[in-house]
Nucleic acid binder design. Structure first.
Lengths: 341, 341
DNA sequence: TTGTAAGCGTTATCAA
DNA sequence: TTGATAACGCTTACAA
């Protein structure tokens, strides 16, 4: 072993070719005679050559890196979607530099600085901390997922359709009091807003009695659990004799309600039906398998990668900047009917 | 805007200095006069300079990258620990290139190739696919977490102590039949093996009646749930009149048992006590807050980063290779007593 | 305190 | 089909 990390130069010396030929061996093998290819291949073996992508990036200007910013990883939705992005390496060859958000604008801007410094080719953003106009100004291909996306391309679940499906289903199974639990003051520009709208539109159209219960921005899980318990108590008190259909804005809330009911009654009472939103695997493992509006994470990821790669190509060809007009794709949700409805 | 991405050369031209001075402005600001610093700062503003770390890496040979390979992200333990690693960026400045394992040796070797090609400075490995001897042969700083670690440094929870604590607690609260549920044929060289050992040693020492139930490698979650249900049935049938203390090898199993009991009896029966292992936040959100042996994820991450950075420094100083002898650190678990015991 | 020049390991251009 | 040579943008002796 002559050197710890042999370079093209070492291979060139060993084989008697020039660096250029070694490079061509890798990038345009057809322009090297089979015989010489064999020679080089042999040298690579002997010297245990390992490619140095850093040098390659510098020379070529392409990193095969994508920056990915999630808000957190304790919500299973984000874990699940990150997992799928990472696994897309096999398909597209992009590596991911991952950051987990902190909620602080300043920190997240630092993340972006880092990512730009490393010349990531594009950005996938799930964190909601930075407004899309700032992300757009980066001059970098960007795709947003389930967040405000006024100025950037995005892929989202069709939240409205999900709300509609949930309401319809609850009516269909005979609920006469439709109830929605969601976060207070949810911004109408984020996709999740559609959950409420779709649900309420059906209620109005069908003349179904309905109510919305809001919780305020939670401090942490325990806080959320407490708020949910309060809401459930109110629901029980207010609508004792009704067949209640609960549509919760996410599975976590739905599971909290379900657990609470089980602790009270030892089962899911007849007069309660519950449906959640997100449908990550964990929703299947609740005390009862949870009916839910499932986001098709695989599709979200596929489309996001497609959109991003389009933009990357576009940038390569036309010089710079993402596409002129943001593209927004909608992925239909899937109504998963399990044991709670 | 003259150029899309200004370089030191552009700043140099603009200010009348040389590239070197610009470089020194960044790396050793004290060697540039305050006045000239101001000039340069101004030029950076005007030209909207953005650093290019790729070039920096090539010149300096340091990437500030750490490669991280997890087995998956649907187990909350891995999501949680990944989150903490990512957040350590604020403290250490290392960025993470993350891969999610597939179970295939070949794929994971490809991951390692990529990581080496990008000149990551070190590796954190949680995936168990590749034997540690292979990881050691990379000549790269490596730290393993909760996996086989014969040839590489590692940080692990003191699994044995966890098993001991679980058994002691179950005895103390009056259980007269101690039961452990774990995976069949678990390799004695992986840390998790200690859970069983610690538990059994206490049982033997205290002359407590005990039994172990094994499940075989699960295909997926549903399979595991089914196996667990079978085991529970057997336990109920075999030890009807006993005060049963169940120590499950992880929280997921414990939650399955707990859910199953709730579905059967509408509550946790008096003659059952349950304790899990891992203690990620999700264990608190089971139908009943789960008693569990908690791994101190924050500490695991801190120690892993410390060990890795030691090795990185060592490699920089002494030329190459990780330390001569692997270092293994043990983090004590914390017994979390909640509602199931 | 500043500048010159060589180098990091590739890729790209143009001759040969 | 091959090889010189010049980039890519930064760091680092060494000299001024």
């Amino acid at each position: 072993m002559s050197r710890p990390n042999p370079t093209y130069q070492d291979i060139a010396n060993y084989t008697g070719f020039s660096k250029t030929t070694i490079s061509r061996y890798f990038n345009r093998p057809d322009t090297v005679t089979p015989k010489n290819r064999a020679k080089i291949r042999h040298a690579l073996e002997v010297l245990d050559y390992k490619s140095n992508k850093v040098a390659r990036i510098l020379a070529k200007g392409q990193t095969e890196f994508i920056g990915l910013v999630v808000p957190n990883l304790y919500l299973s939705f984000y874990g699940e979607i990150l997992d799928q992005f990472l696994k897309s390496f096999e398909k597209y060859g992009y590596k991911f530099i991952v950051f987990s958000g902190t909620g602080s604008e300043e920190t997240e801007r630092r993340y972006l600085d880092e990512l730009q410094a490393y010349h990531v080719e594009g950005l996938i953003v799930l964190s909601h901390t930075l407004p899309s106009i700032q992300l757009a100004s980066l001059g970098l291909p960007v795709v947003a997922i389930e967040r405000e996306d006024l100025y950037i391309s995005s892929v989202n679940t069709d939240n409205y359709a999900g709300g509609v499906a949930a309401a319809r289903h609850l009516l269909q199974i005979g609920c006469d009091m439709l109830i929605h639990i969601n976060k207070d003051e949810i911004d109408s520009r984020i996709p999740a807003y559609g959950r409420r709208e779709g649900f309420l539109d059906v209620c109005r159209r069908e003349n179904a009695e309905h109510a919305v219960f809001n919780y305020v921005q939670e401090a942490d899980y325990a806080d959320l659990a407490q708020q949910t318990a309060g809401i459930l108590q109110e629901i029980i008190d207010t609508y004792p004799a009704r067949r209640k259909g609960l549509f919760c804005s996410n599975d976590t809330i739905a599971e909290m309600v379900l657990n609470d009911l089980f602790r009270r009654y030892g089962k899911l009472p007849e007069d309660f039906s519950i449906i959640g939103f997100d449908g990550t695997p964990s929703s299947e493992h609740a005390i009862l398998p949870l009916s839910t509006v499932q986001q098709q994470i695989g599709l979200l990821v596929d489309h996001a990668m497609e959109l991003l790669i389009d933009q990357i190509r576009h940038k390569k060809e036309t010089g710079f900047a993402p596409l002129s007009e943001p593209v927004h794709r909608m992925i239909p949700p899937v109504l998963k009917l399990r044991s709670t409805t």
